[in-house]
Write a protein that binds this DNA or RNA. Structure first.
Lengths: 337, 337
DNA sequence: GCACTTAGTACTATTTTTGAA
DNA sequence: GTTCAAAAATAGTACTAAGTG
């Protein structure tokens, strides 16, 4: 790489000439090699500054056989969660002297495959993949290239190295909160099929009910959007008194749908969300939800990836984070019949 | 760049040996040079496939003097707007054979300066900068490196090449909507000082009032968050009947704050937002707001940047996009006194 | 100890050679 | 012989690492 098309900047050779040393000495100054006299170092540094010299990363990569690039594959959504995690990966990588190539792709195998090929073409040293869906996980697992990979928002028991929040536990906590309020008919508006987190949250909901000796009160499949939550309002069993939603958007949509039916939350029906998006505290009613630390997930994922790149084996079981329940006002005891 | 630390993959030389040609012929095949016999081409392609060969981008960059990298500087927020635009830049860049280095930085001059330095160190050929604040614009303007730059969410009249939506017009449309409903006391909850879009939206609000011969009914400064919107509820003049908010988050917060005071929207007070975030249609009441096409902004920005990189002068005045007013239910005629 | 010279990195661009019409 | 396509050989790219004064 050099300075764009036209503005080819000074090379190490130019700096060397200006400082009356060899280009190798300039290299040593830049790499903090001990064998440089302080005054020589100063002179070189001064010329670097004066000429505005920057090392050519391409030439460096070529000889060091290191790209210092980390590929990130993310689904093409603007969800708060994925966005936060990806940003955390990026800043942690930068702090560690790497840069990230973030590529988005549709949640679909061939798109993911193409995106991964693109990242591989750029010579990345490792991959962080937001793999919320089986199709993306499959595209990653197909990769024959022996590259360190860490998955996010993926299946805990999958084939890939994994960092994430215990989704099942989160959904169980949300459900237990409703049970503690006295609800016995608790339904679920799920995420779409094929999404690991959707499945884990559904398991959490049903296992909490099973543990309490209750029958699940039906599942309506949503697609993470508020629109699907709104539509779910019409599909709910009439005797349901509480609903665990797959995420906050769905919960916000469900509340809107119920309102259009003339039913109030939490008076007529209790609703809990998942994620704790920034708006959750300000909608009507303020949403009781499950918070996850998305930035921490991103940081841990990068730490794990760097360990793998350096050939260090990271501890396996210590990257399952616990979510927390945030109780606000969208849950209340069921109306007496 | 090569295949990570350990897995140094095959080189062009290896492919050449396997196909019994010179490495130069392999290069020609890869670059679609005409002087290769079809059967030779096939043989080379087959070996590339069989060996899983990928070109080394570092070696390529070194000799072509092109990095094919585009730097993107974005503020470290997960706002729907910036995120959408950045994603659009990324996918448009990929389609054009470039990759993007997205770096986030705090909205503060030294952080932006450091982030730009980082991008420059990576040898980017151009920059897309989300520069919503004067401090970021200043950090970019300081850059002596003669690199093509396009700014987003920035000042239209600034020193930088610019692509964006006419914020002032959007705020004017929002305000005129309230005036058409019969309001005469229209306040504004603004964005924070120093943000170009905050200032433009404020100008749009006040100019619409001035054009109608009305006095502005006061400004409360917010910080784009729902929290600040909620706080603004307490700071509003009692005789205000409508409020133009700096963005949807602020509007959602304001509605929540008013609700806590026992005032209903739109019965007691009308509120309009800005941006049309995905939740806007599902909150209570569904938010009347100003929609901007964030993805289009990103695509136009990239197109403009590529034109600059190729040394083509892009037309100056044709990248001011028009927002649209989305009328929902948070506006109504003022209550008769 | 300090700094220079040389070699090597994996490509693309340029020039030269080969072989066939 | 001359010409032209095909492919080889060579040079150059900006660095780091190893060997040499």
């Amino acid at each position: 790489m050099t300075r764009g098309v036209r503005g080819a900047g000074p090379t190490m050779h130019d700096v060397a000439a200006a400082a009356s040393v060899s280009h190798q000495t300039v290299s040593r100054v830049l790499n903090d090699h001990p064998s440089v006299r302080p005054e020589t170092r100063q002179r070189v540094l001064a010329e670097i500054e004066r000429l505005g010299y920057r090392r050519n990363p391409a030439a460096r990569s070529l000889v060091t056989r290191r790209s210092r690039a980390i590929g990130v594959l993310a689904p093409e959504v603007t969800q708060h969660g994925a966005t936060s995690s990806v940003q955390a990966v990026e800043s942690a990588a930068r702090a560690a002297g790497y840069f990230t190539l973030v590529t988005t792709a549709a949640v679909e195998r061939s798109a993911a495959r193409a995106a991964l090929g693109f990242l591989l073409d750029q010579g990345v040293e490792g991959l962080v993949v937001v793999a919320p869906h089986a199709e993306i996980e499959a595209a990653v697992s197909e990769l024959v290239v022996p590259l360190p990979v860490v998955a996010l928002q993926s299946a805990r028991a999958g084939r890939l190295d994994w960092v994430g929040v215990d989704q099942e536990l989160g959904a169980r906590m949300a459900t237990e909160h409703l049970l503690a309020l006295g609800h016995t008919r608790v339904a679920h508006v799920s995420g779409p099929a094929g999404y690991f987190e959707a499945e884990a949250r559904r398991r959490g909901w049903s296992s909490a009910l099973a543990a309490a000796g209750l029958e699940p009160a039906g599942v309506v499949e949503g697609d993470w959007t508020a629109r699907s939550g709104e539509a779910a309002a019409a599909a709910l069993d009439p005797d349901v008194t509480a609903v665990v939603c797959a995420n906050d958007q769905t919960a916000i949509g469900l509340v809107a749908g119920l309102r259009r039916q003339g039913r109030r939350v939490p008076t007529d029906l209790s609703v809990v969300g998942f994620d704790d998006v920034p708006e959750a505290a300000y909608v009507d009613p303020p949403l009781t939800t499950v918070r996850q630390d998305f930035r921490l997930v991103g940081e841990r994922a990068l730490a794990r990836l760097l360990a793998a790149i350096d050939g260090v084996q990271a501890p396996a079981e210590d990257d399952v984070l616990r979510p927390t329940l945030v109780v606000r006002e969208s849950g209340a005891p069921p109306r007496p019949r």
